[in-house]
Amino acid sequence: MISFLLKKITSLIITLLVSTGVIFILIEVVPGDPVAFMMGLSGSTDAADALRLELGLNVGPWDRYFDWVSGMVNGNFGISYTYRVPVVELIRERALVSVPLTIYALLLSTVIAIPAGLISATRRGSLVDTSFMGFAQLGVAIPNFWFAILLVLFFSTTLKLFSASGFPGWDAGFFICLKALTLPAISLALPQAAILSRVMRSSVLDVMNEDYIRTARAKGLSKKQALFRHGLRNAMIPVLTILGLQFSFLLAGGIIIESVFSLPGLGRLVFQSIIQRDLIVVKSIVTLLVFSVVTITFIVDLLYAAVDPRLREGNS
């Protein structure tokens, strides 16, 4: 168990180090000088040099890389070129929207998909199964921004139950914010739930054909009991993988939905920063996203080990 943990943590750290290197190099080769962008067309060379000094851009790439990484380790991500505020502040503010939105969407998708997949699998070929899987097909097929607009038209414009866009900030109160995030969360959750329910269904169907389910049935368990006592945990393993991938995807991939609902989230921040050549923000967010993806993968690995004793031994 301990060797398993050590191995996983080592690979986590190595992945992070390598990814900071790759991000740094990529940002270096991206055309566009942030200083020129900030100074505008009329800036003098002297002023530009002064700005370079201020931003720490006057030294070589190696130094810049180490400054950047050591800064991040100490929680100092630098100062945004465009907004002139600490990057940490900027990200924190946006993450307070994106992270809850992601979790909300993921919860919704899990709550819908797991029972739907389970019911479909246990009633394979029935009307319920066919219609659930039909919906799932539809959920994957329709673009989620279009679905988001439909939601706004129906719930905000017609029924006037939700506000159409914007985010009041957490000071306004938990439930008000939750309400503001509901329509975006539903639109994000729809395609995810559709995929997840299909994975759940096929996973349960596979498990139901396993020999150990037959053994359980021979003990005298009914089909349902055998599924719940022996099948479900086995069926969750592929579902966990997909959930981990979806979390990472939603965290930064919510940009379209953030735009539809005018939410100040991470996705939009990255987008704006790229356009404005605010490279330090881009670098930081991308690194943070990598960090979160790697961490989520790590957590999923731990969950695997919690579910499956074979993985706890650290040899596979």
Binding site: Y212, T215, G220
Partner: peptide, 28 residues
Amino acid sequence: SEREMCLHRMNDLGMIFQEPMTALNPLE
């Protein structure tokens, strides 16, 4: 009925299968 059959499987009938490698739940 299926419920009565479950009782018979519990009390009267036992079964052993061909493939022992997969006959047990790997997680328990």
